[in-house]
Amino acid sequence: MTDACTHPQTPLLHVEHLTMRFGGLVAADDVSFKAQDRKITAIIGPNGAGKTTLFNCLTGFYAPTSGRLELNHPTRGECLLERMEGHRIARDAGVARTFQNIRLFARMTVLENLIVAQHNRLMRASGFSFLGLLGFKRYVDAETQAVELARYWLDRIGLTERADWEAGNLPYGDQRRLEVARAMCTEPVLLCLDEPAAGLNPRESADLNRLLTFIRDEHSIGLLLIEHDMSVVMGISDHIVVLDYGRKIADGTPRAVRNDPAVIRAYLGDENDEENDNAMPPKVTADPKGGDV
């Protein structure tokens, strides 16, 4: 809902020479790419390629070994993410994310999850709790507004009926969408989604695609999308970055990437370079809650 007013040439996110080492292991190796406003940028790559590590660096969970992560906030200007604390990246730079294994507040209700996401605004409105404790109107209004925003997203993800359920009791697919909605409630300019379609059935997956394109088109923000499901990636992304063993091996439009021999090699191994539309088989996620993230 932020009015984007960046020049077309300054990208929303500019990653330059990002390197992340864990002891001897180089999980991200000199990765550089750009992500634009109102575009879905997909990050793909085999397991262990360093996709989640990239997100963790972007959102302040890991301090990168080296590199520059520049975010151009349409109203607040340039932010260097690698120098900011995790919570400030979400609060001040407007970067929101979801997690590979869902991290909802499982024992809180769906609505509460969405209200907690609006913490900082509500906190200010409640005069850091003092006015709120005394029942000031300003806080009551702010809370009503927060509920309205939550209701807006509940309608989008079709959970209005179940707003008062415990989030942990929702079916898996709904939890995934709730996590996206929760991230959107922080009113971000860049939304990072870590395998949002993992473990979804085809219908849920299609719903999710619609939700993501809706966010891109109606809320005019940039999206970073980690995904193994090629139908999702090819269907909705505007731009694709391919990682393998921590290195960027390709970067371009879906069409260009699909035909890139390096990408095909990374997915299928060297001997098989036969052109194939389904060259990149979707990863089979046996245990959707598994994975190390």
Binding site: F61, G86, H87, F99, R103, F105, E112, H119, F128
Partner: peptide, 26 residues
């Protein structure tokens, strides 16, 4: 206080601190 933002943030922190950080909660 349970019904104020701090109170909710406390409960959210108890549930999942990492998620809280990703939502901009200090």
């Amino acid at each position: 206080i349970r019904k104020l933002p701090v109170g909710r943030a406390w409960e959210a922190l108890r549930e999942d601190e990492i998620a809280c950080r990703s939502l901009g909660i200090n």
